[in-house]
Each structure stands twice: as C-alpha cells, then as structure tokens.
C-alpha cells in the first residue's frame, strides 16, 4: 500500500475514532443517569412517542458496534472523491446516538421518552458540517493513480530470439463463482416447475446471475502477438482483449482482499473509473497499462511470465 492510500484510510477512519471517543466519554459522564431500558424507536404519528425499547447493555454494545462497523467499512472502501462521505456518516450516526441517549437521561418510564423530529435535522446539520471538513481534508491526499506508468517502464522482460514466436496461455478459475452460478442455474428449472404460475417466471432471474457467472467462473488468459485476451475457458466468446497496439506496459501486482475491494469494489468483471478488471480471486495479478492511461487487470497465476512476455512483445512491436 502506498503513502497516499494510507493517508486516505487514516483520514477516513479519523471521524469515526473522534465520534466513538466522544460518544464513550459522554456515556462515562452520564453513567448513573442512563436508565436500564432505553427507548430506541419512535413512532412518527403520535408526537414522536417511543414504541421500541432496548436494554441498557445491549444498546451500548450495539451502538458502539454500529460506529465501529461503519468506520471499518468506510476505512476499507473509501475513495479519494468520497472522503467527505465518511465524515458525514460519522457525524450523522454519532449525533443521532448522542441525542438518543440524551433524551433517555433520567427517564423513569421509557415509554414516556420523546424524541423530537428536530434531532434528525440537527444530525443532518452536523453531517453537512463534517462533510465540508472531509471535503477540505481531501486536498491532503495526493491525486492520481497508485500504479503510475513509471511502474511499467522497468517491468519484467523475457529474452526472446529475433525469429522466435511466443505465446502464453493459462486457465484460472473461481470456485465460489462456479458454485454460485451453478446454484442460480439449478434454481431456474426448479423454480419453473415448483412455484405457482406466473410467479415462477421470476426463476428466470437465475439465468441473469447464472449465465454470466458461469462464463466468468473459469477463464483462459492468453498473451501473444495479438495482445492480451481473456475469455471463458470453454467458449471463445465473449472475450475481452487489449490489442498489442494499445499496450503501454505490463506489471505484476499482489492483490489481497482489501485491495480487491478498494480498487475494484468486488469480484467478477469490474469496470471502474480508471481500470477494468477480471478479478476472480486474490493473489497474483497481471496489470496492463493502456496507452489511454487506463488499466486492465486480470488475476491469474504465473502473471510474472505473462507480464514479461507482454512487455517484450510490445517492445518488439515498436512500443514501450
């Protein structure tokens, strides 16, 4: 992970750390004023009266877990352009929790607790203010792609004779995706036969998940004189290809789960602002830099050989 990413994560975690600290300090201060049962849900119709209740210990644990969970999610998935969202979320959730506890203070009968609608407005205002703080802090994070073109200029090479022709080919699979796709496809005939008509037509939705899922569950990656091609292992189409003409360079990256989520937002065929990827698992990834500045990534074992060959072929083609 590079410095810019680390800084971005820290700045995303910060509002949640601050909120959680403030919340815990207030809880400690109010310790003997918090009742054993708190009103935690309020009906909108009859003057915001309480109609849902939670025990004190459960509430404290749940509320702290909520802040921790939101904080972890934002820290892992944050993007530079969305940093303000982390601050807004922390502000909104934190304010609501604090106001909720405040309304419950010294309550003898939790059913008598009233939470004015103004609480929501106040939380929204705090969220908006913190969003502006987050927006300002975005400037502290350098812009640009973590994997710049410089990473590929000194990418791996392969010694290839002048008259030699070379190609690299490798199949790679995702077991969870295979299982998911097969289950989705199996649900189609089962649903059509067993469910009452016409609701059973909903089972056809299984095709929507199953067919692309199956196509992606096992793919073959090829690097040769034509460029990089990724296609389903068993059929030649549909395929994704980066022609050799458009290859600016290739490199290898180790993608762990956090990097997959942060850079691609999940597994499968992913299209993001600066990159496209066929991400089937974690681990070795062939990253192709295109002339346009976009990145094409595919998770595949032995990506080092693929990158070396691609760089060599692109160089021979009069590029790099």
């Amino acid at each position: 992970m590079n410095r810019a990413t680390t800084r971005l994560r820290v700045l995303a975690a910060l509002p949640f750390v601050l909120t959680l600290t403030t919340y815990l300090v207030l809880l400690a201060l109010w310790d003997d004023r918090i009742p054993d049962t708190l009103a935690t849900h309020f009906g909108g119709a009859d003057g915001a009266r309480a109609d849902g209740f939670t025990g004190r210990t459960a509430f404290l644990a749940l509320s702290a877990a909520l802040l921790l969970g939101l904080g972890t999610g934002w820290t892992v998935l944050v993007r530079r352009t969305a940093l303000w969202g982390a601050w807004a979320t922390a502000g909104f959730a934190g304010t609501l929790l604090v106001l909720l506890v405040r309304d419950n203070l010294d309550a003898v009968d939790p059913a008598g607790v009233v939470s004015p609608l103004g609480n929501l407005a106040l939380a929204a205002a705090v969220a908006a203010a913190l969003a502006l703080v987050g927006l300002g802090l975005t400037r502290l994070v350098p812009e640009g792609d973590p994997a710049g073109p410089s990473a590929t200029a000194d990418g791996p090479r392969l010694a290839l004779g002048a008259s030699e022709v070379a190609g690299w080919s490798r199949a790679t699979a995702s077991r969870p995706l295979t299982v998911l796709a097969v289950l989705a496809l199996a649900a189609v005939p089962a649903g059509l036969l067993l469910a009452p008509w016409p609701g059973s037509l909903l089972a056809l939705l299984g095709l929507v998940v199953g067919v692309p899922g199956l196509a992606l569950s096992r793919v073959r990656v090829t690097v040769d004189r034509r460029g990089v091609t990724v296609r389903p292992a068993l059929v030649p189409r549909p395929r994704v290809r980066v022609p050799l003409d458009e290859v600016a360079g290739a490199s290898v990256r180790e993608l762990d789960t956090a990097a997959v989520l942060a850079d691609f937002g999940g597994w499968g065929y992913r299209v993001r602002a600066h990159r496209t990827g066929v991400v089937l698992h974690s681990g070795e990834t062939l990253v192709v830099q295109r002339d346009s500045g976009r990145e094409f990534a595919v998770t595949v074992p032995d990506a080092r050989t693929a990158a070396a060959l691609l760089n060599t072929l692109a160089e021979r083609h009069g590029k790099v």
């Binding site: 004779g161 070379a166 690299w168």
Partner: peptide
Amino acid sequence: MLFRVDPA
C-alpha cells in the same frame, strides 16, 4: 504456460 517456437 509459455510456448516459444523458432520457425528458423
């Protein structure tokens, strides 16, 4: 797997 052939 890497395939390399030399027609020469």
